[in-house]
């Protein structure tokens, strides 16, 4: 497989602290790659450098062979990178469908039109995207009245609006109930496999990671300490030490007991 995203020697220092140090990895189209690690390990910093919110001190971020490091987020978006945030970022003063229409208006370069009625533009395309994430019925509700799990779905619809090649998801299931978590990740998985999108996501919920990631990277103190298939990561001694602990208190049984059937959870976690 050719790499969709190729990150090499990424570094960032804040006031003498090495937040990210020499991180390199690749991601292929259609692949779900999880980035895990303790708080403050540099996951968000890594994300923000790929997304363009931060400029790396050094290193390279190539998307489909094109260098994107240091470009502003809105340019990187135009090159085909969608993003969802740890705390869902949507437009509270708009309806659900208007949130998606906004991304489409931006995609079509219509932001500075002063006279047309925005609510009538790209509505059907926006409704299709909402239907894909299961929110077709709620298109005209104010976004501010949606439950948190639904807001995350709106974000996903927005992120898909520019037909991205790469999706960056920062803790996609944070703040959601377990059932919702798995439903959202299953939906994401189906959508990206169908559209051939590469996904890089961070996550604290181990059941989600082991159930849905194709590959896992572990970050600690700004460095990549392990990378590989979920089974290999589970058994990695160093990872257990800095991150998993003894595993006696991890939320669900299959993550607590390494080697148990993660695939079983995935099957059980389909849309209800």
């Amino acid at each position: 497989m050719t790499a969709l995203l190729k990150v090499q020697g990424l570094r960032k220092t804040f006031g003498g602290v090495h937040a990210v140090e020499d991180v390199s990895f690749e991601l292929a189209s259609g692949e779900l790659l999880a980035m895990i690690g303790p708080n403050g390990a540099g996951k968000s910093t890594c994300f923000n450098m790929i997304n363009g919110q931060l400029a790396p001190d050094s290193g390279s971020v190539a998307l489909g062979g094109r260098e994107i490091a240091g470009r502003p987020p809105r340019e990187i978006w135009r090159l085909g990178v969608g993003r969802t945030f740890q705390v869902a970022a949507t437009y509270a003063s708009m309806t659900v469908v208007e949130n998606v229409q906004m991304a489409l208006l931006s995609l079509h370069g219509q932001l500075f039109r002063l006279w047309a009625r925005a609510a009538a533009l790209h509505r059907s395309e926006a409704l299709e995207l909402l239907a894909a994430v299961g929110l077709g019925q709620r298109a005209d509700e104010p976004c501010s009245t949606l439950a948190y799990g639904d807001l995350k779905r709106v974000e996903l619809a927005i992120a898909l609006a520019n037909r991205p090649a790469l999706l960056l998801m920062d803790e996609p299931t944070a703040g959601m109930a377990p059932l919702e978590r798995n439903a959202l990740m299953q939906l994401t998985r189906d959508l990206v496999k169908e559209r051939g999108i590469g996904v890089l996501f961070t996550e604290h919920s181990m059941d989600v990671v082991f159930a849905h990631a194709d590959r896992i990277m572990v970050l600690a103190r700004g460095r990549l300490i392990a990378e590989g298939a979920p089974a290999a990561i589970r058994d990695d001694r160093q990872v257990r030490e800095v991150y998993f602990g003894s595993g006696r208190l991890v939320r669900t049984a299959h993550a607590a007991a390494p080697g148990s059937a993660a695939a079983g959870t995935r099957a059980a976690a389909g849309p209800p």
């Binding site: 690690g37 303790p38 708080n39 944070a174 604290h204 181990m206 030490e241 800095v242 991150y243 998993f244 602990g245 003894s246 595993g247 006696r248 208190l249 991890v250």
Partner: peptide, 14 residues
């Protein structure tokens, strides 16, 4: 206390 912290910290909290 266990929300959003690494499993190893969760053990310390317990």
């Amino acid at each position: 206390p266990s929300e959003g912290v690494a499993p190893v910290i969760v053990e310390q909290m317990a």
